[in-house]
């Protein structure tokens, strides 16, 4: 990881002492993330025992949650939370765009492919420093759009299974078993992705361990801002950061 920074006296002259923090997430985003945690965990906990119901642990969990009908009811309840949160997110994003509160930094761009190439070369020692990232790096965008994709697929297949007689008024019936298959396996993929990818980057990564708390506090330290989001930092401060990464290739 390269370190990008302004020299300390310049930072201080800009009013950016060592203990200064940047706002990274607004309250709305933090609440959104909280709703996602609750609904995602609850959906996984009530859904996976249904998929793997033949196993003893699954039967135990189903009973612990009040029986299979109650488990399904809970699953549907948290599905509504999950779906509503997704709808709110999209509506709020468009509102933010109209009001010019948020930009389009989240959208995938060519620079993400370049950054990935750069990162791959860095991994195998062909580059001395990591690519410089803006507000969101390609790892975060990958996860965000995996979430968007998962939301669309799970909501669509889930609603079909929830109301099959209604759904088959408009759709061919084969989509019910197909949807069930997709729903179950996409759930496995989603849980694995969250545990492996999200778990690593916000918990087990050496720079954030034991937890990256910025999604809860809404803040990010000056140091992490400089290290992880140098382009955003430069834009915020209005001065190019000095790359001193060579020292730490």
């Amino acid at each position: 990881m390269n370190r990008v920074s302004l020299s300390e006296d310049v930072l201080i002259s800009l009013g950016l002492q060592d203990n200064v923090e940047f706002i990274r997430f607004s309250l709305v985003r933090r609440v959104e993330h909280f709703l996602l945690i609750i609904s995602f965990v609850a959906l996984a906990a009530t859904g996976l025992p249904q998929k793997f119901n033949a196993a003893d642990w699954a039967q135990w969990m189903l009973t612990a949650m009040g029986g299979i009908e109650t488990t399904r009811w809970l699953h549907h309840f948290f599905a509504i939370v999950f779906i509503m949160e997704g709808i709110f997110h999209v509506v709020y994003a468009f509102y933010g765009l109209l009001r010019r509160r948020v930009g389009l930094e989240m959208l995938p761009a060519w620079k993400d492919v370049r950054a990935f190439q750069h990162m791959a070369l860095y991994f195998i020692g062909k580059r001395q420093a990591m690519p410089k990232f803006g507000r969101y790096d390609y790892r975060q965008k990958f996860e965000y759009f995996a979430m968007v994709w998962g939301w669309l697929l799970m909501a669509a297949t889930g609603l079909i299974m929830w109301q099959p007689t209604w759904a088959t008024n408009y759709l061919p019936g084969i989509l019910i078993p197909v949807g069930k298959m997709l729903h179950g396996w996409e759930a496995v993929l989603a849980v694995l992705s969250i545990v492996i990818w999200h778990g690593y980057h916000v918990i087990f990564h050496p720079d954030v361990f034991p937890v990256d708390s910025s999604i809860f506090s809404g803040r990010i330290s000056r140091m992490r801002m400089i290290n992880e989001h140098p382009l955003e930092f430069e834009e915020a401060v209005g001065r190019p950061a000095i790359v001193e990464g060579l020292k730490r290739g």
């Binding site: 099959p164 007689t165 088959t168 008024n169 019936g173 084969i174 989509l175 019910i176």
Partner: peptide, 13 residues
């Protein structure tokens, strides 16, 4: 399944 139609029964493989 009240209201089941032909398409609904296609769900059964």
């Amino acid at each position: 399944h009240e209201g089941a139609n032909q398409s609904f029964t296609d769900a059964w493989t």
